[in-house]
Structure formats: C-alpha cells, structure tokens
Measured scan of single mutants.
Amino acid sequence: NQASVVANTLIPINTALTLVMMRSEVVTPVGIPAEDIPRLVSMTVNRAVPLGTTLMPDMVKGYA
C-alpha cells in the first residue's frame, strides 16, 4: 500500500506548507503520494485542512 500525505496539524487556508505540517501514512482513500512531500513544501492550501486529513491534489494550489 502506498503512503499518502496527511496533515500533522490543523493547516489554515492559504498557509504555505512546511515539512512539520505533513506526515506520511497509509490511508483510504489514497491522497497525494508521500514521495511528493518535498515538492509540496512552500505550496499553499486552498482550504483549511484539519489534523489527520489526507491531502488531496485539489487542496494544494499548483499541485494538480
């Protein structure tokens, strides 16, 4: 099973992502692959992402 990116904290809308905000976890449904974490750093989220939420491609500006 592939690990996905999961919010390690509440990420407010329009926040630039940092490494400490994200962790990898095997979850269903599958979200952004964990190997993309380095690429996500400094990208911003377009909605509030609660703790434990899987990051989906449409949640990160410029990812999809």
Rank of each mutant, 00 (worst) to 15 (best):
N46V: 10
M59E: 03
A48K: 08
A16H: 15
P57I: 05
G62K: 07
R23L: 04
I11L: 06
L17P: 02
V20I: 12
A34I: 07
V27Y: 02
A64F: 04
K61W: 14
A7E: 01
M59A: 08
L10R: 08
R23H: 05
G62Q: 10
V60I: 11
G31Q: 01
V45P: 02
L40G: 00
M43S: 04
G31M: 02
E25P: 01
A3S: 13
P50Q: 09
P12E: 11
R39G: 06
Q2E: 15
E25N: 10
M22A: 00
S42F: 13
N14P: 00
V41A: 07
A3C: 08
S42R: 11
R47E: 06
N14H: 15
R47N: 05
T54C: 04
V5C: 04
P57N: 08
G62V: 04
V27M: 07
L51D: 08
V20R: 14
P33G: 06
S24H: 13
A64P: 07
T53D: 14
R47Y: 09
P50M: 07
I37T: 15
A7G: 03
A34D: 08
A34K: 07
L40F: 01
G52L: 04
V30F: 12
T28C: 15
V5K: 02
V5I: 14
V49M: 05
P38A: 13
G31C: 03
Y63G: 03
D36G: 05
V27C: 05
V60P: 01
P12C: 07
R39K: 09
T54H: 03
V41E: 05
N14V: 03
S24T: 12
A7C: 04
D58T: 10
R23N: 05
V30P: 11
P57W: 08
R47D: 05
L55Y: 00
N8Q: 13
V60S: 01
I37C: 05
V6A: 03
G62L: 11
P29K: 05
D58K: 09
P38I: 09
L40E: 00
Y63E: 03
D58Q: 09
V5T: 09
R39E: 04
P29Y: 04
T44W: 12
L19P: 09
V6Q: 03
